[in-house]
Nucleic acid binder design. Structure first.
Lengths: 192, 192, 192, 192
DNA sequence: AATGAATGAGAGTTCATTCAT
DNA sequence: TATGAATGAACTCTCATTCAT
């Protein structure tokens, strides 16, 4: 529903997702994306105004999908269950995208549209978590939301960079993270 | 101590720090760095083999300074004090570098030297925290170290991106973070 | 027939032939060749991978044309007639190329493709003459082939460098050369 | 006798001879020559006005030495002996310089001084041979001189390019060449 | 809508040469 | 005389973007 796009639009977006994700924005070439999509170079410009706009479209699609999944994860759950579910989702989401690491690091610099969009996404993500925390009575919900997301981001990095990380490790890490966030590290101090 | 380099070496490194930090690797031009440093373009290549190597040199200097400060922060402190001090240092460090944001995001992709160095830096930083946690009896110290650093990274982002953030807010955030990490978010749940 | 190349391909090749021939490889600029060909700089790189490859293409075209003409010159002729015809062709060929001297002297150094090609060309040329000599019963045909070609090369130099050399002198020189090669210089010693 | 030059002058000239000879003019760097000579880059410019002038000085020294040896080879000899001696000298001279091939091929293009000098050298060399031929009664001595030199040049190429060529092959080739030049190739036609 | 040949601004890098010491 | 740090002009090559077909 909404916009009518042809097959080529999807093909280009998918190809861009792969190429940008593999090489990052600056090292990706439009010609390679076009080839990967099975269209001519000029065709890319029929659907996207510029390389930057194509990057933004890729990013937007990915982020929106991400937020939608997160939203679902929070309905009808206790704080502990919600955090666990979010942690799990966060890590699994990126685990599936191991091959697209660069999409999250190597982004173009100067484009104001993208900066604006990313700011918005981060805000939306933070708000999602913040509202959940607030509704469960956690004080300083914004601060706690940011801290939670940050924790997950760093743990995600491990998954992206560490080739030995297996899918079953993901859930274990998620559980540890949710627990830490709930009870702090002292819960894990050895009695001496 | 240290290598003997002339004034120009320092000038170029400082200029590169500023320019790379402001625009990121790909959008920075050697000619601009040279101009900023007050030397000719060719002079840059007397001191650094390539744009990539210059970037690495800038990054290395910054990271080493960072680790040195962190190391000092941990000696002779309890777990709580150490975490608080680290949180504070982490945030203050980047607060001072508000203008050099891009140095931490926009890095060249393909250079193996840089990838290797960054991996090493992250490892060293993690180990620093991990060892402190382990010596205080925290279980799963590696996991907790990563989570702590992640938390700080995300909070740092706020500082970098939010122009309204004042220096006094930094300490407050650091305190909240250390406390959260020690006792979990439930410590802040309102009685209802 | 052969490969299908557009007009631009030919135009660039012709321009490169002129510019390389006039200034030599190292003193020629791609920008000048492009301008001479009436195309943009970038267009050159659509058809040729590098300056070296462009040079090789120019050289190859010229050498192949040369060998083809030589081959024709040898069919159904006696030794004396064949040598005379070859000498004539050799000298006329370069006489027509007076303006492209540098193509034969100033070649890039390091390119292995070119070195290989030139070795092959010299070999082919030598074999052509050698086979003719052998079929006419001349002993040591390879040595004699090299000597003959060398003689012609030096005489060619005269033509290239001496601006006063007229076309009619060419035939005279060719006849002298063929005769010398057949009978030696003593045939021309004055009785005393 | 004549000019007073220090040790450094000689050292630079020798280094330039080696480097130019190995890599050709355009691929040689002044810095490498200076290093090879054991002096600083700037010192080269105390003795030679430019890279071109240094190349000319190297070439001149080599050519003068060559002509001097040739001159000696011709005194008090018959035509046949003289030609044989010259052929032998020509080939041996370059055999000894196998490692300096590039000096004879890759020369700078545009320098008028060098062009003038080379023209002069070729003239002197030709005259040397021409006078010998004339004094022995050979008709058209200039033409014959050029043909002889050309023959030798081509045979020299073989020596320079063919790594398997042994020193003893040199004399054999020289004898064949002198004989061919004296009596023509028909002297070697098989009776049938 | 689709193509892909053509463009040309712009980047990194080299290296002969200079000149203050 | 000797140095070598500094210069900056000049080059090759890339690639996002356009537009005639």
């Amino acid at each position: 529903m909404g916009e009518m796009h042809g097959d080529k639009y999807e093909a280009i977006l998918n190809a861009a997702y792969t190429v940008f994700g593999t090489k990052g924005f600056y090292e990706s070439k439009i010609s390679e994306i076009a080839e990967q999509a099975g269209v001519a170079k000029g065709t890319v410009y029929l659907y996207f105004k510029s390389k930057e706009q194509l990057f933004i479209a890729v990013t937007r699609r990915d982020c929106e999908q991400y937020l939608a999944e997160m939203q679902d994860a929070l309905v009808n759950r206790t704080l502990g269950e919600g955090l666990l579910r979010m942690a799990s989702l966060h890590l699994h989401y990126y685990y599936k995208r191991k091959q697209h690491t660069k999409l999250f690091f190597m982004t173009p610099n100067s484009d104001p549209d993208l900066i604006e969009f990313m700011r918005g996404f981060i805000q939306d993500y933070t708000d999602l978590v913040k509202n959940k925390l607030a509704s469960e009575g956690v004080l300083q919900p914004e601060f706690h939301a940011k801290a939670f997301i940050g924790m997950m981001e760093r743990l995600k990095m491990d998954i992206l960079l560490n080739q030995d990380f297996r899918e079953c490790d993901v859930d274990q890490t998620a559980a540890l993270a949710a627990n830490l966030f709930m009870h702090g590290c002292e819960a894990g101090v050895q009695k001496s």
